[in-house]
Design a protein around this nucleic acid. Structure first.
Length: 644
DNA sequence: CAAGCACCC
DNA sequence: GGGGGTGCTTG
């Protein structure tokens, strides 16, 4: 082990700047902690819970003649989603086969579990509502548990500035979430390690942190990814190991709460970003969590095909495979950035270069609310009349309306602004028609049905509607209701005041360029400009300049009384409430960090996610023929990039 | 805006 | 493969 004399003098690889990045959820800090939590065979577990089936009982969820979820007890029998019901029964005679709930023609918007649904593919439509309901409960339990970590003060002393931190939670699908644990891990970290509490002056932000006092970490039941070849478990842990340990403790408590309260198991991955966390959660299933420490990232990623990395599972991954003649991350590591740039557009090249080295700065989008709702049905055989189609539109409208009610249409919390009808004929490519939902209308089943029906008439009128093999209805572009609107308006008002204030009192901020109207917009008609103003309330300096993850400096409340102590910030000359001083200083610090990030970005090329048509030059896909060479990178794109 | 495309479970 | 989702680009 370590010699107490020389080793104890060692300092951490990390600085106070890195630590502050953790506090504010900076996407760049190497101390960041992201979790991905994935419910195990989710639909199957929903049915097990609903039916009270023991965990050892093999169970599969059935949709018509297919299996859409298989629990872990059934998997040893060789049952997969690719086989049909008859084959599954043969492999496992005792298999519990539960059909999904369905709507039935003529029974309104009520779904039900029916014994005979599998025989009624012609009249029934699948309902996933039971699973959405469970998903909501699980999400809420996760949030509640995270909240206990955020507000619980162990000692009451250190929590002064760290209380109320919240973990950003992104619902990635019905059975997956990403959590940015950074702020809450920071809170726990400074509570447990008093040596990290010392304030530090601006000019000392890059001072190394002291080494953690610990020499061995207790990882409990976690699964650890092996360290890179160059690393050894005998080395003392640094803070990036400690934050993962704290993160894993938090995630374990979240998973435990979901189990104790709702009887669901889930698996989790922890790492320094979303890509790593996501790959990690799939490593040890079911009911386990996997930690990818920073010192294990190279080893971890080296074993993957890059086509398994998020965003590379589709055509982009396919194209990269063709161009470079390999699917392996380890092979692609030997390709220089210049070589990547020769074959891919700059955007994609630098993103790819970073991502295979474990660099992913994408944010956890703190989003829980649904953005669109879709109700669909495939027809075998195809349908060929308006009459038949209308019956399904009734069911779609009822389905979606029921979900809108759950979402709060009745209380006017949210309402969709657009409705879309998708249809498919024998051609593989589906088509769609959409139309606005009249803003003043009361949304109900009939309204949705009428709008859908109008769209259907349009499709029919254009010909090519029959035979129809697939039909679906969706609503989207949600608008927040009046209650929230008032809150937003007052927020915007405060935002304007903030701007006025900042222009008046801040010396000069390179971050906030003088107001500059995009020239092409000048040509627009006045009323369009007005519409745009109200439609896009965030001005360039609001969206771009301060960066999404950086909190604005606290604003003074209008109702404030004079006796609250204040101080004048030496950096921006603003008068700040004394009790908000620390936060304000942190804000400056975050701003500094952000500009540092941007400088880094200019030098290194930032890693934004790839977009379409990323292959450079004449490489073209089967159809369309637009390789993307033309849309390279005008200067404006660069500017925008720098601000993101 | 409307429509399509890519990617994900 | 069927039933849902998200985000982006293009005309």
């Amino acid at each position: 082990m370590s010699e107490p004399t020389s080793e104890s003098l060692k300092t951490s690889r990390f600085t106070y700047r890195h630590l502050q990045g953790l506090r504010h959820g900076s996407t760049a800090t190497p101390l960041r902690v992201i979790a991905h939590i994935d419910l195990d065979a989710f639909y199957a577990q929903c049915e097990m819970v609903r039916l009270g089936t023991p965990r050892e009982t093999p169970l599969a969820v059935r949709q018509w003649d297919s299996l859409i979820a298989i629990n872990y007890a059934a998997r040893p029998f060789g049952i997969t989603r690719l086989i049909n019901v008859a084959e599954a029964r043969k492999l496992c005679p005792d298999l519990v086969l539960q059909h999904v709930a369905t709507f039935r023609e003529g029974e309104g918007g009520r779904w039900a579990y029916r014994d005979d649904s599998f025989k009624n593919i012609q009249t029934d439509k699948v309902s996933l509502d039971p699973y959405r309901a469970q998903s909501r409960k699980i999400l809420q339990t996760m949030k509640d548990t995270l909240a206990t970590w955020s507000t619980n003060d162990a000692e009451g002393e250190t929590s002064r500035q760290t209380q109320g931190v919240s973990a950003g939670l992104e619902k990635a699908s019905i059975d997956e979430v990403f959590i940015d644990l950074s702020p809450v891990v920071f809170k726990v970290l400074v509570e447990r390690y008093s040596e990290l509490r010392t304030g530090v002056q601006d000019e000392n932000r890059d001072t190394q942190l002291p080494m953690p006092p610990t020499t061995a970490l207790q990882w409990d039941t976690d699964c650890l990814i092996d360290l890179n070849d160059s690393e050894t478990e005998e080395d003392d842990p640094d803070w990036d190991d400690i934050v993962m340990l704290i993160g894993s403790e938090i995630v374990r408590s979240v998973r435990n709460a979901v189990w104790e309260k709702l009887s669901y198991t889930c698996s989790a991955g922890l790492g320094r970003n979303k890509m790593i966390a996501k790959l990690g959660s799939a490593c040890n299933k079911p009911n386990l969590q996997t930690i990818v420490r920073n010192r294990a990232v190279q080893n971890f990623l080296g074993s993957y095909k890059f086509t398994q990395i998020r965003m590379l599972g589709g055509k982009l991954g396919e194209q990269i495979t063709e161009v470079f003649g390999t699917e392996k991350v380890s092979d692609l590591l030997n390709v220089s950035l210049e070589q990547l740039r020769a074959k891919l557009d700059d955007h994609t090249a630098s993103w790819l270069y970073g991502i295979i080295r474990g660099d992913d700065r994408s944010e956890v989008n703190p989003r829980t609310q649904i953005k669109s709702m879709l109700s669909a049905k495939s027809f075998r055989p195809s349908i060929r009349s308006v009459d038949q189609a209308e019956k399904w539109l009734r069911i779609f409208a009822a389905d979606i309306y029921g979900r809108l009610v759950e979402d709060g249409v009745l209380e006017n919390r949210r309402r969709p602004r657009v409705i879309t009808l998708h249809h498919r004929t024998s051609q593989p490519q589906p088509h769609s028609k959409q139309t606005p939902i009249p803003p003043s209308s009361t949304i109900d089943e009939n309204l949705l049905f009428d709008l859908a029906n109008n769209l259907l008439r349009q499709v029919v009128a254009e010909g090519q509607a029959w035979p129809c093999s697939n039909l679906s209805l969706s609503v989207g572009s949600f608008q927040e209701g009046v209650t929230n609107n008032r809150a937003i308006e007052s927020f915007l008002l405060r935002g304007d005041q903030a701007k006025a204030l900042s222009h008046a009192s801040r010396p000069r901020d390179a971050d906030t360029p003088p107001t500059e109207q995009p020239t092409e917009k000048r040509r627009k008609l006045d009323d369009e400009m007005i519409k745009q103003f109200f439609g896009k309330p965030s001005s360039p300096e609001n969206t771009g300049a301060s960066g999404p993850e950086i909190p604005q400096p606290p604003l003074e409340a209008e109702t404030e009384v004079a006796e609250i102590p204040r101080y004048t910030c030496p950096r921006c000359s603003r008068s700040i409430l004394e009790y908000e001083r620390e936060e304000h200083e942190d804000w400056h610090f975050a701003k500094d960090l952000a500009s540092q990030d941007r400088e880094d970005a200019r030098a290194l090329q930032p890693p934004p996610p790839p977009t379409t048509s990323s292959i450079r030059g004449s490489f073209s896909r089967g159809k369309g023929g637009r390789g993307g060479g033309g849309r390279g990178k005008p200067e404006k794109g660069q500017m925008r990039l720098a601000f993101q």
